[in-house]
């Protein structure tokens, strides 16, 4: 079968299917996503305002039936202690995580501190409910998205991630999960791209202050013959300095972006040393 014939055959092998969604629906969905991305962060006050059945805390880590809304000293400049009545519910089991559903309402395990919340991230899907939370659970900060899928309270999924430089913010992580595209939109400015020849180049407007294509970040970062690099740039998008390390995986560019703070070092060499140590220790820059 020739290529052109195959092209024609595929072209004519199916029609247009049922009516597509209206253009306005796509515009509206895009607007909602943009609002979520911009607003992103819901403060503790919003969490409390939602009312019963949400965030509770107490001295114990299970079985709580009432208490105060968990406070996050970093979430608001002037955290306001608030007491929210919480309905009695079944004790929490060890198998349950930081959240669960009861009667279709999301419950947060007593003792879990809610820092930020984004409502209904999966509004465009047919699930019954969904909520994204930035929490501290058992002493560990976690990003969580809960989605109630089916008719029963047990028919839900929970996805979690450790907060990291992998995404610029909790809101960016949520947006990335919602988009489910894996295209690497991590919320950081896009400072590098591949040109037509597959070379890694700066995006238009990005200023490269320093760069090496031999950062020697070790095997935990990339296999020996995989193309890698590092650069210190000023991003066109926000004019801020970022330290970037990259690797080309299966032909695709994977860039890890870190704000160039003093923690990384004062010079490019110090930043490289920091990155080498992070990858040698297995932690990486994310």
């Amino acid at each position: 079968m020739t290529s052109s014939r195959l092209q024609d055959e595929i072209e004519h092998s199916f029609g247009d299917g049922p009516a597509p969604r209206p253009v306005d629906a796509h515009v509206a969905a895009g607007r909602r996503a943009l609002r979520r991305r911009r607003a992103g962060v819901a403060s503790l006050v919003v969490v409390a305002a939602v009312g019963a059945g949400w965030a509770v805390t107490g001295p114990q880590d299970s079985g709580g039936t009432s208490g105060e809304v968990a406070t996050d000293p970093t979430a608001t400049p002037t955290p306001t202690p608030m007491t929210t009545p919480v309905p009695a519910g079944a004790p929490w089991t060890d198998e349950e995580g930081p959240v669960r559903y009861r009667d279709g309402v999301l419950e947060v395990r007593p003792g879990v501190v809610v820092h930020e919340r984004i409502d209904d991230p999966y509004a465009d899907r047919p699930s019954r409910a969904s909520t994204a939370l930035d929490v501290t659970y058992r002493g560990e900060r976690q990003w969580v998205i809960a989605e109630l899928v089916g008719a029963g309270d047990d028919d839900f999924s929970v996805g979690t991630a450790d907060p990291s430089n992998g995404w610029a913010s909790f809101a960016d992580w949520v947006a990335d999960q919602v988009d489910a595209n894996g295209a690497g939109d991590d919320g950081w400015p896009v400072s590098l791209e591949q040109d037509q020849q597959g070379r890694v180049v700066a995006t238009p407007g990005t200023t490269v202050l320093d760069r090496t294509d031999d950062p020697r970040l070790g095997d935990s970062f990339a296999a020996p013959r995989q193309p890698t690099g590092a650069a210190l740039v000023v991003a066109a998008e926000d004019g801020k300095r970022y330290f970037l390390v990259w690797r080309v995986l299966d032909g695709g560019l994977n860039v890890i972006t870190t704000p160039a703070t003093r923690k990384l070092g004062g010079t490019f060499e110090e930043m490289l040393d920091h990155a080498r140590a992070q990858y040698a220790g297995g932690e990486g820059l994310l």
Binding site: V27, A29, A33, D124, D185
Partner: peptide, 9 residues
Amino acid sequence: QTALVKLYV
């Protein structure tokens, strides 16, 4: 829709 939402952003 997933793709177009991301495109809009």
